[in-house]
């Protein structure tokens, strides 16, 4: 097991290196000048000579290879550099913004898992019936509607019905948990509804297969109550693909909240990424993308490890291999 984890971590490091090289090249290949954006000098109000000095100060006048070597050296000691836009350490900016994004991810997944799995199970349990049809229709709408559109409808509804407006100050969870939850529930809901639909449909599909298995028939023949058959024998065995999906979705959500955070004005990582890209803030873009890649790597590894917990056969398989 330890060897397996070490192998996966090593592969993860390789992935991160690849991602960092690609991002490093891509952000520099973008048209636009970090020095111009940093000085707010668009429109020619700052001379080229001054801009050259700024580029030199930031090391942007160096060849890309040297810039990459400098950046890698810092990354090796977990220094993500200084944001050209905010002037803060990128890690400090991330540290302040990540909790909001994490809270939305966690809340939306709680909503998605809490509603998606039961609705998928019931849909499969009563396959072809009225409950199934209603749930199928709802989940289809949830899948078809983009989360930003759901978000806009939510805002509109909240404003019209309750005179609600987005909070001016987003309370951090650790300062005021209840207030924070009450603020972030709406963006979480707009994202979570789509995830709910996704999980619900996946759960239904798996459960339809599982409920047709011999061991389910055996359980029923032994007189196990139907609820126990479905949830204890069926759901437990059908969870693997759903867990995989949840793992991927959590990782994807960290980088996928850009529009939702923007329309709800949440000061999370998504908004930070948008501002960084628009301002050609190279260290910030590189730092955040590296972090997101790291989250995906760790997320995938966690899912794999969870497989072992949920299905002992995978543990045995690795041991044999």
């Amino acid at each position: 097991m330890i060897v397996y984890i070490a192998q996966r971590l090593l592969a993860g490091l390789g992935t991160l290196l690849g991602v960092s090289i690609i991002v490093f090249i891509l952000v520099r290949a973008l048209p636009g000048d970090a020095a111009v954006m940093m000085t707010g000098a668009g429109g020619g109000v700052v001379s080229e000579q001054e801009l050259q000095q700024v580029r030199a100060k930031l090391g942007l006048d160096q060849p890309w290879v040297i810039q990459f070597a400098d950046w890698s050296e810092r990354i090796a000691v977990l220094d993500l550099g200084t944001s050209l836009r905010t002037g803060n350490a990128v890690s400090a900016d991330i540290e302040r913004r990540l909790p909001y994004t994490m809270e939305i991810v966690v809340l939306s997944m709680v909503i998605a898992i809490g509603l998606g799995i039961p609705s998928g199970v019931f849909s499969a349990w009563f396959a072809g019936g009225a409950v199934d049809r209603v749930l199928q229709t709802v989940s289809m709408i949830g899948l078809a509607a983009p989360s930003f559109w759901i978000g806009l409808l939510l805002i509109l509804g909240l404003v019209v019905l309750f005179g609600w407006s987005a909070p001016l100050f987003w309370e951090p969870f650790w300062v005021s948990p209840l207030k924070s939850l009450s603020q972030l529930i709406w963006p979480s809901l707009s994202v979570g509804l789509r995830q709910t639909a996704l999980i619900s449909r996946m759960t239904r599909a798996i459960m339809l297969e599982v409920l047709d298995e011999d061991y389910i028939r055996t359980a029923r023949a032994k007189g196990v109550p139907e609820f126990g058959v479905v949830f204890r024998h069926g759901l437990k065995n059908g969870m693997l693909p759903v867990v995989t999906l949840i793992g991927f979705e959590i990782a994807a959500l960290f980088g996928g909240l850009i529009i939702t955070e923007t329309i709800f004005s949440v000061p999370g990582l998504g908004q930070y990424v948008v501002s960084s890209i628009l301002n050609r803030d190279y260290p910030a873009i590189q730092g955040v993308v590296l972090l997101l890649a790291g989250i995906v790597v760790v997320g995938n590894l966690s899912v794999d490890l969870l497989y072992g917990v949920l299905d002992p056969r995978t543990r045995r398989g690795r041991a044999v291999a």
Binding site: L30, P31, G32, D33, V36, M37, A41, G42, G43, G44, L278, N279, R280
Partner: peptide
């Protein structure tokens, strides 16, 4: 239509 950074690049 371009983003600000690209526009500045063309203009400057």
């Amino acid at each position: 239509v371009r983003d600000a950074g690209t526009f500045y690049e063309l203009e400057n």
